[in-house]
């Protein structure tokens, strides 16, 4: 089953939205809000578009907007990927 791990998300964030000099994306950031990592809503939108494209899935926009941390975000992504695997 397809799963997105934190390391995958970090790679995508770097590719889609770049990286602030003052953040350590390789640290324990699962519960760090995206804003504190230097990522605003547009950065997340860009990254989400990329995941939708790569995995041919479509997110519930409101749900994904509500995900404030990598943990919450990955949970939504992986739920969707799992649901698709079942179908």
């Amino acid at each position: 089953m397809e799963r997105l791990e934190l390391s995958d998300l970090v790679t995508l964030l770097r590719e889609c939205a770049g990286e602030e000099e003052w953040t350590d994306l390789d640290g324990d950031i699962l519960d760090t809000p995206f804003l504190d990592l230097g990522y605003d809503s547009l950065a997340i939108l860009q990254t989400t578009g990329r995941i939708e494209r790569d995995h041919t899935i479509t997110f519930d926009e409101e749900a994904i907007d509500a995900a404030e941390t990598p943990r919450q975000y990955l949970q939504l992504v992986n739920e969707l990927l799992a649901a698709r695997a079942v179908v």
Binding site: A17, G18, E19, E20, E21, A43, Q46
Partner: peptide, 8 residues
């Protein structure tokens, strides 16, 4: 240009 600004 800072890394965060390159994609934008």
């Amino acid at each position: 240009v800072p890394g965060r600004l390159l994609p934008q």
